[in-house]
Nucleic acid binder design. Structure first.
Length: 595
RNA sequence: GCCCCCGUAGCUCAGGGGAUAGAGCACUGCCCUCCGGAGGCAGUGGCGCAGGUUCGAAUCCUGCCGGGGGCACCA
């Protein structure tokens, strides 16, 4: 799969056409980083990190610095541009082990770093920061690499060989996907794309309960609605119940004459199917498609619950009490033991969870990721315990991500929602109100730890107040510019024909630094399971681009001829567009060429 | 009572132990010989409180205060 992520529902047009690209050009040297690192004067932050590490190793080797070599050296982009292109705090970290003042360690490393090609200067600042500035050409090469790599720019191998099962939404087919589930649809799918972009093998999974009592309540509600009666006390009352009941009756005209038991069963089967079709449809419109829709009923039918309970019993964690069968989860840190089989002989939902987890592991997944709403926070303890009871390590095989709730706001007032009154905003309503792109972006740009207020007015606005439009506009603006270049007959040529040292303006340097940052943003966002970092980065990149655009004329005016600067700037613009496009794709949002 | 998440600018939110804590909106004042002004520049304004760890804390630890969500032989 060559692309960064799975395609969107409507695939946007490809990258700006650039003639003469050589895909092999993006390859980097291998082997000893000190030798092969800067072939062609390329320096990326990743390479700088490796370089600093090897300089530390070399110093340790020579005996001038008595420290253990760190596994990884952190380099970061300083806020203040005067602090160079990249900064590292290794000297501060190593000072204690070396038994020498941080600045002394920094000076020592700086001297070696200054010898490296592609590095223009190394300054020791403050308590012992190492501020590194690349040569103009080395920085400029990053733009060429980004364009050349195209959709692959930003991909890393941070999660190579990880096989992960990503479970999210998992709303039961008793009603539409509510706003909480919608948040997970946006964040979960984006996380899936991020993990894929960092080399993981990802399977998206939707687990639905089709075996429990709430499905029976759903069926009884449909029967009641079909007969024009009010919903049962414990039933479902939304307006969609009436819609589905009518569609079932329309499909099976004789259904209302059937005996009560048979009638409810027919409503159950047809109702669940109709509801699920609607759910899948609204998710697809949202750009989210699952690899597997997993039915709880298949676990029951296949005897998986019996088997997993036998396994747990064999491991000595099961006991009988008060007529029920229990898992001693308190042995693994849970607050209280949990029942597997109720005293009436029915299995609990928790028993199915045990079987479901075992099933995922049996299917070969290294990591089981489950995304839950904050209202399920109490579930984490018992889930970790069941993983331990089955002999796995929760820290390694399980990740439960909790997402806080979403409040909707309109006209500055919180939207009061009531299931009874039928004023619940669900996935399809949100898409209708603000569009799929804005909905996905709005939900994915906030940290899941944060409760968010989502303003429907703001996100439906087609102005720069709306962050998704701010980012999309930057892409459209660049697309327009590149079209203009084509109209003027300006040939971009291949990367070898570009003089990257032309990009020396401070705003160009800022933009290059931002473009160079993208792969690290993708990696960090994937590792921290935080897709919102990509969105925030894109907003910053868009702003950096607008500032560049304001200061640096790209296309020739009037009778002027295109120059080497023109060509270099067009490549920089194209690189920016590539990153905006790849970043938006990670979030499942379109990057329009025109708006 | 116990557990989980969150208190950062007037508002909505970023900030992986680092340098002068950021963005958008709002407010004030600027920039159109301008490739998309759906832009840009400048200004106003902030880490809930108290301790602790550290060379260094918005970030890690403890306690309090405030907001939200959980604590079923429900799903």
């Amino acid at each position: 799969m060559p692309d960064l992520c799975r395609p969107l529902v409507a695939t946007p047009a490809g990258p700006p056409r650039v003639t003469g690209c050589d895909p092999a050009h993006g390859a980097h040297g291998e082997g000893n980083p000190l030798v092969g690192l800067f072939y062609d004067h390329r320096v990326t932050p990743e390479q700088l990190s490796a370089l600093v590490r090897s300089v530390v190793a070399a110093a340790a080797e020579r005996g001038v610095l008595d420290v253990p070599v760190p596994d990884e050296v952190v380099v970061e982009r300083p806020r203040n541009p005067e602090h160079g292109d990249y900064a590292t705090t290794v000297a501060l970290k190593l000072a204690k082990a070396a038994g020498r003042p941080p600045r002394e360690v920094a000076e020592l490393l700086a001297a070696d770093l200054r010898e490296q090609p592609g590095i223009a200067r190394v300054d020791v600042a403050g308590p012992g920061f190492l501020n590194v500035t690349f040569t103009q050409g080395a920085l400029g090469q990053i733009a060429l690499d980004a364009v050349t790599a195209g959709e692959a720019y930003g991909r890393t191998d941070a999660h190579a060989s990880l096989k992960v099962n990503l479970e999210f939404v998992s709303a039961n087919p008793t009603g539409p996907v509510h706003i909480g589930g919608t948040r997970w649809a946006a964040v979960g799918d984006a996380l899936g794309r991020l993990l894929t972009a960092t080399g993981a093998e990802v399977s998206r999974e939707y687990y639905f309960n089709d075996a429990g009592s709430q499905i029976d309540r759903f069926a009884r509600s449909l029967v009641a609605a079909a007969h024009g009666e009010p919903a049962p006390e414990d039933g479902y009352a939304g307006s969609y119940i009436g819609d589905i009941a009518r569609s079932v009756v329309a499909a099976e005209p004789g259904i209302l004459e059937l005996p009560a038991d048979e009638q409810q069963e027919r409503f159950r089967v047809a109702g669940v199917e109709a509801m699920f079709t609607e759910i899948k449809g609204s998710l697809a419109e949202f750009g989210v498609v699952f690899d597997t829709y997993f039915s709880e009923a298949t676990l029951h039918a296949g005897g998986a619950l019996e088997r997993v309970i036998d396994t747990l019993r064999g491991r000595g964690h099961v006991y009988e009490a008060d007529g029920a069968t229990w898992l001693r989860t308190t042995d693994f840190g849970d607050d209280k033991d949990r029942p597997l089989v109720k005293s009436d002989g029915d299995y609990t939902y928790f028993a199915a969870d045990c079987a479901y987890y075992q099933d995922k592991r049996d299917r070969g997944f290294d990591k089981v990721v489950i995304m839950l709403g904050a209202d399920h926070a109490g579930y984490v303890g018992r889930y970790k315990a069941l993983v331990s009871a089955l002999g796995d390590d929760p820290a390694q095989h399980l990740e439960i991500l909790l997402g806080q709730l979403v409040n909707l706001v309109r006209d500055g007032q919180p939207l009061k929602m009531s299931k009874r009154a039928g004023t619940v905003i669900n996935l399809a309503d949100l898409v209708e109100a603000v569009g799929a792109d804005a909905a996905r972006y709005a939900l994915a740009r906030a940290s899941v730890d944060q409760q968010i207020d989502l303003d429907l007015d703001l996100w439906s606005r087609q102005t720069s107040d709306n962050p998704v439009f701010y980012v999309q506009y930057a892409h459209a603006r660049i697309s327009s510019l590149l079209r203009g270049a084509g109209d003027l007959g300006i040939a971009l040529g291949g990367p070898d024909a570009v003089d990257a040292t032309q990009l020396a303006h401070p705003r160009e340097t800022d933009l290059l630094r931002a473009v160079a940052e993208f792969p690290r943003v993708v990696t960090a966002a994937a590792e921290l399971r935080a897709p919102h970092r990509v969105a925030r980065y894109l907003e910053e990149l868009a702003g950096t681009y607008h500032r560049f655009y304001d200061s640096c004329r790209v296309l020739p005016r009037g009778d002027e001829e295109a120059t080497a600067t023109t060509v270099a700037r067009l490549w920089l613009c194209s690189a920016t567009a590539t990153v905006l496009r790849n970043g938006l794709t990670v979030l499942g949002v379109h990057a329009p060429e025109r708006m």
